[in-house]
């Protein structure tokens, strides 16, 4: 059998993503985003995102098919994010994917969003080494995963116990008067700053703390306190130094824990994913520390790190290839789908 053509749907947050892959080859990656509509609220408003998904769904499917130069009837299987994510947003993509699967008579795979973030790297760097470690960081998740078999078995080693790393970027950006989403403007401001100017706290790095869990709430509060103290004293806020020092704290904790997890588990491949993986300091520090520890680092391009439909298609393709059974016709969405459930 030739490699399967898989259509993937992703609507777990504010991006309407529809992508096509054949085997592990990326054919198209169509995206619509409602980010601009959320800006003034400083965070994604679920109802606004859901309304935008509905409007964008069919046109985004058309763009994905046109970019790939295929017909819907050519598709061999359909994959869709079944969770985790925002319930109302997930349901638009799930219902659409179920309808296309029914109308086209193709199998449907409801998949885990986090596992899809790992799978997308195969579109750029080829077959994943198994086991691999994966560090996924975005506005919605901060997770450290052990991946013995991407199609069948993914284990959670650690996760954030409070804010996602991306949320901390958004909140610190707000404190500094930078736009939402906070990742890119902080990255940019930090380039002119000194990462060691301010010694912000590294959450959960004490000897008795959970070795692979994360906490960014304390860091976020520390930054806000530091900035507010300056403002109260009538002193100027050194935005570049604050941004650089905050970013350094985040990158330091994330990479230190990921490298430690690799060493502890005897795993020599690390995959980065999620929107925060586009952060230049995180990438640089990960490269440095992985090189020092003899770990092969794999990072998809920023476009594929953020949420998109191709990542879901990539995981779907893996599932088809592994002969995993498709989802039941009455599959639903699960906003807190555990990572151990690769497909449901």
């Amino acid at each position: 059998m030739s490699e399967p053509l898989v259509l993937g749907f992703e609507t777990s947050c504010d991006e309407t993503g529809v992508g096509l892959v054949r085997g592990q080859t990326l054919l198209s990656d169509a995206l619509a985003t409602s980010m601009a509509e959320h800006e003034r609220f400083g965070g994604v408003v679920p109802e606004i995102a859901s309304r935008a998904h509905l409007e964008a769904m069919v046109p985004t499917v058309h763009r994905a098919l046109a970019e790939a130069g295929v017909e819907a009837s050519d598709v061999d299987a359909i994959a869709v994010t079944a969770g985790p994510g925002l319930t109302g947003a997930l349901l638009v993509g799930l219902a659409a994917a179920k309808a296309y699967a029914l109308a086209l008579g193709k199998p449907l795979y409801g998949v885990n969003h986090l596992a899809a973030h790992v799978a997308v790297d195969e579109l750029q760097h080829g077959r994943l080494a198994e086991p691999s470690m994966a560090l996924l960081v975005s506005g919605g998740h901060s997770s450290l995963l052990l991946v013995p078999d991407l199609a069948q078995e993914v284990q959670s080693l650690g996760r954030t116990i409070d804010d996602a790393a991306g949320e901390a970027f958004d909140k610190v950006a707000r404190v500094l008067g930078l736009p939402f989403p906070g990742g890119p403007p902080i990255d940019k401001a930090a380039r002119a700053g000194n990462p060691h100017a301010i010694d912000f706290p590294r959450g959960l790095t004490g000897p008795r703390d959970a070795p692979y869990d994360f906490s960014f709430s304390g860091l976020k509060t520390a930054v806000a306190r530091w900035v507010e103290a300056r403002q109260r004293a009538g002193e100027p806020v050194p935005v570049a130094d604050v941004a650089a020092s905050f970013q350094e704290a985040v990158a330091d904790v994330l990479t230190a824990k990921a490298v430690r997890a690799c060493k502890d588990a005897g795993v020599d491949h690390l995959v980065l994913g999620g929107g925060v993986a586009a952060n230049s300091r995180l990438r640089a520090l990960a490269e440095e520390r992985c090189a020092a520890a003899g770990i092969v680092l794999r990072v998809p391009s920023p476009r594929l790190c953020t949420d998109n439909g191709a990542m879901v298609a990539a995981l779907g393709s893996r599932l088809v290839e592994a002969g995993v059974a498709p989802s039941a016709p009455d599959i639903g969405a699960d906003s807190s789908l555990p990572i151990e459930v690769v497909t449901r």
Partner: peptide, 16 residues
């Protein structure tokens, strides 16, 4: 209209 309140706790859980 949408209830335009940003989510305060969108943290998909990754452990059971």
């Amino acid at each position: 209209r949408p209830d335009a309140v940003p989510p305060t706790s969108y943290k998909p859980v990754t452990t059971a």
